[in-house]
Simulated scan of single mutants.
Amino acid sequence: MSGAAHIVWRWRGLSLRSGRRALWVNLALMLLLAAGALVSLRLGRIAIGPAEIWQVLAGEAPSRMLDHVVMDIRLPRLLVTLGAGAALGASGAIFQTVSRNPLGSPDVIGFTAGAASGALVWIIGFGGSGAGVVPAALAGALLTGICVYLLARKDGRVGAYRLVLTGIGVGAILSAFNALLLVRGDLDAAISGNLWLAGSVEGRSWGHVWPLWLGLGLLMPPLLLGMRPLGLMAMGDDLAGPLGVPVERARRWMLAGAVTLAALATAAAGPIAFVALAAPQLVRRLARMPDQPLIGAALMGAALMLGADLLSRLAPWGAILPIGQVTGVIGGLYLIWLLTRKRRRG
């Protein structure tokens, strides 16, 4: 017990020493998000100045046209971008803490593919769209989560490596199932499904905003409270158990929350690669923290999504790039840089 107490004291000491740096990183990310949000609201065919944007947000729009452009087109798109990025970043932080693996993110383990399967079944199988995509994606992700959790259990416990490997296998099966749905579905429905799979925040409405932000508001407080037990579990289940951590129950509920966050983001913006994988790692490197910071990961995820959206809208020659493809390219470059950096160190 004395060895475990020493490890916990050391872990807490590291967290306290890095707390001030993490605070500055979070403040810098908030300022970056505020600046990016202003650029996002101004960007478009109709040029709108900061003063006019403020008037519209304050309910004193100079014209109905400006009110419609800001409140019905640009603001919902911005809120979906920020909310989806925050949900993915927080989800990735939880998955990486539970699996104790930097590759433990919902898009790698297969939960994003499960959410996509639910949405595609609704879009292609039932010819649905709109609000029905959200519960369909949630159902697909939660069913995938239950399947992966049960398959990864051995002797009543879920091992970190078993969770990742099982999730990768289930995700591969679901990706093949999604491709089969696209091939066998009606042409119009298949086109709609394929566009949704590309990942996009174009044309998002308040119907996409409310479920996403309501889910974030309800899930983030309990998930924040649950991060401390997960930090103790990072030392190993055998050490966390004697310290009073209900290991399996904490793992089960935190995974359920992370899956729900990933499903909400996928339902609102489609499958988005890289954000959940990289956001926790980037903020952890900047803050120099030993554990995965949930708030920092959420802010970093929102910043990555907003940056990708701005890049997609500023693409040359009028090219229209889905945000999911932009994050995929950025993610590939990030992984290449990371592998090259590790090889040079080795």
Rank of each mutant, 00 (worst) to 15 (best):
L120E: 02
D72M: 12
L66A: 12
L333Y: 06
P222V: 04
M65S: 09
L282I: 14
T166Y: 11
L29T: 00
A137D: 08
L224T: 10
P322T: 02
N178M: 06
P242N: 06
A303V: 12
L282R: 00
A136G: 10
G241E: 14
P135H: 06
W122M: 13
W24H: 14
R100V: 07
P229D: 03
L16W: 13
P50E: 00
L75C: 08
A61L: 11
V108S: 04
L214S: 15
L314D: 00
G318V: 01
L27M: 10
G193H: 08
L151W: 14
G128Q: 00
R288F: 00
G49D: 15
V259I: 14
A51E: 12
L182E: 07
L57F: 01
G167E: 07
G171V: 02
P211C: 10
L282W: 02
W337F: 09
V134R: 03
I173C: 12
L311P: 00
G36H: 10
M233P: 04
A28D: 01
P50C: 04
W122P: 05
N101E: 06
A315F: 08
V158I: 13
D72S: 09
A315K: 02
L38N: 07
A262N: 00
A86R: 05
A262K: 08
T340M: 09
L165F: 10
A172C: 04
L120A: 11
M227Q: 14
S117T: 14
V247G: 11
P242V: 11
D309H: 09
G114Q: 08
M235S: 15
A34V: 10
P76T: 00
A93H: 01
L75W: 00
G231M: 09
L38T: 13
N194Q: 13
L195Q: 15
G193F: 09
G44D: 03
W11N: 08
L304H: 02
P293G: 04
G59C: 03
G19N: 13
S15F: 00
I109S: 01
V326D: 03
G236H: 08
L23V: 12
A37N: 08
A119Q: 10
M289C: 05
L239V: 12
V148P: 08
L33Q: 03
A28I: 06
W196S: 07
A273T: 05
F177M: 13
A240D: 14
A263M: 10
A190D: 05
G171E: 03
L255C: 04
L333C: 06
M289D: 11
L310K: 09
